[in-house]
Amino acid sequence: MRKAELTMAIVMGIFSLYLMWKSTELEIGWIQGEGPGGGAWPFWLATVMLISCIFIIVNWVRKASPPSRSAEVFMDRGTLIAVGLVAGSLIVTVALFYVIGVYGALPLFMIFYVRFLGRHTWPVTAAMATITPVATFFFFDIALKITLPKGLPIVEETIFYPLYKIFL
């Protein structure tokens, strides 16, 4: 935990410096007749971020904040695997949106989560994998007219064009 606290403060400090540098792409001083330049607001805020990070590091040295005193492990192996699997499956699901669309990726995500992470029975898994995409389609695509990504054009043309014809 102690190491993580320091690492995060340093990473965020560097991020603040990057933001300060990025803000200078616009004028950060006073422009006659226009007031403060467009970069001034983010520049000074990033400066405050940097100062805050320095204080977090000072507190770390003085052991003044709870995480800087904690001897606990920031993330043990099991937590890393549990959280990593979920985060990873989300990333893969979103990446699949481009190829097979929301309605292709969603059942796969449900099968992975409900069957393999949740260890539910196959009937429960099958129910989740069919009900959620169908409900989503009718609520968002049809009722609210928010078209969700359908993936490659071929997927949309063969599967969804006939559905649009019926329901829209």
Partner: peptide
């Protein structure tokens, strides 16, 4: 484990 994927 059933509610979580729906929330995601």
């Amino acid at each position: 484990t059933l509610l979580a994927p729906i929330i995601f």
